[in-house]
């Protein structure tokens, strides 16, 4: 296999594996920027994955091709509702955000598997028939070299992920909403004094992460896994958190990091058929995202700074 052929092979699958990570990581950027740590992204992805698969199995006959897309919307709504639990606990009830996030993960997996067992009487669903399909982007796919790398056999979900990343960048850095969001995450009291409703901003941020996390889980389930079981989402949410940190709490940084982690995942899945790569034991590719994140945090790859008020409940009138 020539080098170019390897790229034709690996880059599309890297983008394919990265899409759920990108969306979920951007969800993480929104909450952390507002000052709420969301360890519960894994749990949110799980309920998103489960709800989309269950919906897909029930409505594939009626909705046909559009089922996975409606499934995304369903997962988004379920994700939002589910994330509200975190919002209520962490913002209104001043619970420890990390602990509530951990509880959210436990709850998400338990509720999802409970529901699946209740409906199907077994721990794993059947495979869905309506999956996301690929297509070639007209014109762009005709560009030599690059066209074949990026625009042939593209999943629409990958385009969605890129679009969301760019929109998120615009919203966080170029809109009044984004300015308030960042202010609330850096210095909630100052923001409060200026008339920004801290509680409302944080609720909205957590719900955005619920929406994006739900969609991320649904894409993983409907494009990559094809069914849902207890181990369908195993660590994707945490890897998204890793991407968010590695991307330094910036939407485009998270996009880049998620792409890189997707690349590592793709290598570990399809690497067996590529020269040189197949000689690397899988374990290195598996742990790469996590180790890189630790190195990034330790400052070996440029210092990453979390938003200042991240993880601290805001209590009015408290200095």
């Amino acid at each position: 296999m020539s080098f170019l052929e390897v790229l034709y092979f690996i880059i599309p699958s890297a983008i394919f594996y990265a899409a759920p990570l990108i969306l979920t990581a951007i969800g993480g950027v929104f909450t952390e920027r507002s000052g709420v740590v969301n360890i519960g992204l894994e749990g949110i992805m799980v309920v998103g994955a489960a709800s989309s698969i269950i919906f897909n199995l029930f409505f594939a006959d009626q909705l046909g091709n559009s089922t996975p897309w409606v499934g995304l919307v369903v997962a988004m709504v379920v994700g939002i509702i589910f994330s509200l639990i975190l919002a209520v606990a962490a913002v209104s009830l001043r619970a420890d955000q990390t602990v509530s996030g951990v509880a959210l993960n436990l709850l998400g997996l338990a509720v999802a598997v409970f529901t699946v067992k209740m409906i199907y009487d077994k721990g794993q669903t059947d495979s869905i028939t309506e999956r996301f399909s690929r297509f070639d982007i007209p014109l762009l796919s005709d560009i030599p070299v690059i066209g074949k790398m990026f625009f042939v056999d593209v999943y629409a979900t990958s385009i969605l992920a890129f679009a969301v990343a760019i929109i998120a960048w615009f919203v966080i850095y170029k809109s009044p909403f984004g300015l308030r969001l960042r202010a609330v995450g850096e210095h909630p009291m100052a923001a409060d004094t200026m008339g920004v409703n801290v509680t409302k901003m944080r609720y909205v941020a957590v719900m955005i992460s619920g929406a994006l996390g739900g969609i991320g889980g649904a894409i993983y389930a409907q494009a990559i896994a094809g069914n849902f079981g207890a181990s369908t989402i195993s660590g994707q949410g945490f890897m998204a958190i890793a991407a968010m940190i590695f991307g330094k709490w910036h939407p485009l940084g998270a996009l880049g990091a998620a792409l890189f982690f997707g690349f590592a995942q793709a290598l570990s899945v399809v690497g067996g058929s590529i020269p040189y790569i197949q000689d690397i034991p899988d374990v290195y590719l598996h742990i790469l995202p996590y180790v890189l994140t630790i190195l990034a945090l330790a400052g070996f790859i440029g210092k990453a700074h979390a938003p200042k008020a991240s993880g601290v409940p805001y209590i009015k009138g408290k200095r």
């Binding site: 619970a95 602990v99 509530s100 509880a103 709850l107 209740m118």
Partner: peptide, 22 residues
């Protein structure tokens, strides 16, 4: 009843203890 109900109960207990403030 699926065993997961126990995990649901445990997760809820964590939420309530963590939200002990209320």
């Amino acid at each position: 009843v699926p065993t997961e109900i126990v995990s649901i109960v445990i997760a809820l207990i964590i939420f309530f203890v963590a939200s002990g403030y209320i």
